[in-house]
């Protein structure tokens, strides 16, 4: 891969991170060089291999019974939510 196009505007929209202009410039350069380094993987001969997502294969299935678990009553939202009304989280209107 010779020229990798990195559309930082597109990425920052997908990742929901707003970048000021000056940050964009150096970030773009840095990312370009990291991506360039990462494209080393292209040279590996691995088409015959299965992708590795998990470190080991479990035997059998991992799942839980359909039963209500005892939990601590969590007064969490009132402690940590930025804005809350009638126990619901408040945000600016979603259009």
């Amino acid at each position: 891969m010779s020229e990798l196009s990195l559309n930082l505007d597109h990425l920052s929209k997908l990742a929901r991170i707003q970048l000021p202009e000056d940050e964009k410039r150096y970030l773009s350069q840095q990312l370009q060089s990291i991506v360039g380094y990462c494209s080393k993987v292209a040279s590996a001969d691995v088409d015959h291999l299965e992708p590795m997502v998990h470190s080991f294969e479990h035997e059998g299935n991992v799942w839980a019974e359909d039963e209500i678990a005892e939990g601590d009553t969590v007064d969490f939202l009132s402690q940590n939510a930025p804005e809350i009304k009638e126990n619901q989280i408040v945000i600016p209107k979603v259009l």
Partner: peptide, 12 residues
């Protein structure tokens, strides 16, 4: 679930 009131939205 989102509900909308005036210039706010509430999340449940």
């Amino acid at each position: 679930k989102l509900t909308h009131f005036g210039d706010e939205s509430w999340i449940d």
